[in-house]
Amino acid sequence: MQQYEWDFGSVLTYWPMLLQGLWGTVAISTLAILLGIVGGGLVAAMRMSRYRSLRILGTAYVEFYRNTPGIVHFFWVYYAPPVVANVNLGPLEAAVIALATQSSAFYAEVLRGGIQSIGNGQWEGATALGMSSKDALRRIIVPQAARRMVAPFVERSFEIIKTSSLASTLAYGELLYQGMQIASITYRPLETYTLLALIYFLLLYLLSSLAKFAEDRLQEV
């Protein structure tokens, strides 16, 4: 077997493209996380609503996203609206919508799980004082649940960052898509994709170290 000659140099000359891709990844992930938190709050409220119909709707939403692959959502959002309603979404919009709707479902479960993990005694302690259930939720339940939600929230956010690589299938210029371009220009797929993997690894490893640090600080209180 012939010895392969590694050449990262020719790939690295395209670093501005990679930087642009990194920016794209950060941009859609951040947007999806922010929108997902809002959507997740709504879906969680539906799932815990006193109205049965809202509960069913919320549950159906979560189950749909839990049981179907992300790539289906990406293609659906990108290709179906133009044909159905003559609405053309750019790759950025389509990717953000697909990611955000999906993350709403997952964040909703984080919120619900956190709130339900607080024992019934805390509700009773609060309402026995004459607090409204809204006050009990705001002052007693959520502050305690928030601490328990940090870890699953971080985990979910990481999933979103990783899933954002699916936007490459819609030709949105995030890291993977930019990497594919570089691979086809340089004919150096081994170096390019190894480098991509390394960038993702460093990005997520760095973020998870930060998250762990923040989490430890929170637990100390």
Partner: peptide
Amino acid sequence: RNIPALIQLIW
């Protein structure tokens, strides 16, 4: 765990 599955497949 820290690399997207799609990148792993492509790699």
